[in-house]
Simulated scan of single mutants.
Amino acid sequence: MTKTFRIDRRGFLCGGASFFLAGCTSGMERQFKLPVSPQNDPYYLSLYGPLPDERFPVPAVDLKKVDPAYYRRVVDYDGPERPGTLVVDTPNRYLYLVAENGQALRYGVGIGRDGFAWSGRARIAYKRAWPTWTPPAEMVARQPELEKFRNGMPPGLQNPLGARALYIFDGNRDTLYRVHGTMEEWSIGRAVSSGCVRLLNQDVIDLASRVPNNTPIIVRPA
C-alpha cells in the first residue's frame, strides 16, 4: 500500500489566522491602511520568531536580510516526484517537500558555490539535532585554520551545521553533503556553501520534524 504524504496545513498556517482576521476591517479603515510588507507581516514574524526552548535558544530571523521570495510557504507543484520526496531546485534556490494534490512545502535555500556544487539522487539516511561538525580532510587541507576542528566542532549557534542536519547518503555511502541550518540569513538564495544545502534554522527545524529517515532526495543540477 502506498503511503500518502499530506502537509499539515492547519499546523503550518495556524500563525496566519489572526493576520487574516485582522484584515476584516471596514472599508473606511482599509482606505487609509498602508499595505504590510512581507518583512513586517505578523504571520512571517511569527513563523521566523525566536525559539527559546531549543537546546541553544535560536534568535528571531532578521527578515530584512532575506528576500521574501525565499520565505517558507505552501505552493503548487507539478513535478513527477512522489509525495514525501525532497527536491532541491539548485538553479532557483528552493527545496521542496512534495505533498499530494499537486502541492509542496517550499523553503528557500543556499546552495554550493561554483566548483563545489553536487547533484543527483540519494536519501536522507538519518537526522541529527544540534550536530557536531567535522570538516572533511580535503577542506582542512584547503583551509588550515580548520585544523582545530579536525575531530569535530561542538554544537551551537556558531556551528556551520546549525540546529539540524540531514545526512545525504548514496546507498550506504556517505556523500559528505548535508541539508542543514544556518545563522547566516544573507546566504539564503545564494551559492555560497561547500556543496551543502542550507536553510534558516527555523526552516530546517520544521523540515526535520516532517521527514523520516530514508526520505528520498533529488538535487537538480545548476
Results as ranks from 00 to 15, higher is better:
M1C: 05
K3F: 09
K3Q: 14
F5S: 01
F5K: 02
F5E: 01
R6A: 08
R9V: 11
R9W: 12
G15Y: 03
G16I: 01
G16Q: 05
G16F: 03
F20Q: 14
F20L: 14
F20Y: 15
A22Q: 09
G23M: 14
C24H: 11
S26F: 07
E29G: 04
F32V: 13
F32N: 05
P35N: 09
V36E: 09
P38D: 03
N40S: 09
L45I: 11
S46V: 09
G49M: 03
P50G: 12
L51S: 05
E54W: 02
P57W: 04
P57E: 09
P59M: 01
P59F: 01
A60M: 08
V61K: 00
D62G: 05
L63N: 00
K64L: 13
K65R: 14
V66P: 02
A69Q: 10
Y71K: 00
Y71M: 01
V75D: 11
D76G: 06
Y77M: 09
Y77Q: 09
D78W: 04
G79A: 13
P80H: 07
E81S: 13
R82H: 08
G84Y: 00
G84P: 02
V87E: 00
D89Q: 07
P91N: 14
N92L: 08
Y94C: 01
Y94W: 08
L97H: 03
L97G: 06
E100Q: 13
G102Y: 11
G102H: 10
L105N: 04
G108V: 00
G108N: 02
I111R: 02
I111F: 06
G112Q: 02
R113W: 03
D114S: 12
W118M: 08
S119L: 07
I124F: 09
A129D: 14
A129G: 10
T132I: 11
W133R: 12
W133Y: 14
W133T: 04
T134S: 07
P135S: 14
P136A: 10
M139W: 11
M139S: 13
A141D: 15
A141F: 00
A141L: 08
Q143D: 14
P144K: 04
K148A: 10
K148M: 07
F149I: 09
N151D: 13
N151E: 11
G152R: 10
P155C: 09
Q158D: 13
N159S: 15
N159F: 01
P160W: 04
P160D: 05
P160K: 03
P160N: 04
P160L: 04
P160F: 03
A165C: 08
L166Q: 06
N172H: 12
N172K: 09
R173C: 08
R173I: 12
L176C: 04
Y177N: 01
V179L: 11
T182W: 00
M183Q: 10
W186C: 02
S187N: 03
G189S: 05
R190Q: 10
R190E: 07
S193G: 05
V197E: 01
N201W: 00
N201D: 15
Q202R: 09
D203V: 08
V211E: 07
P212R: 14
P212D: 12
N213S: 14
P216D: 05
P216W: 08
I218A: 07
I218L: 14
A222F: 14
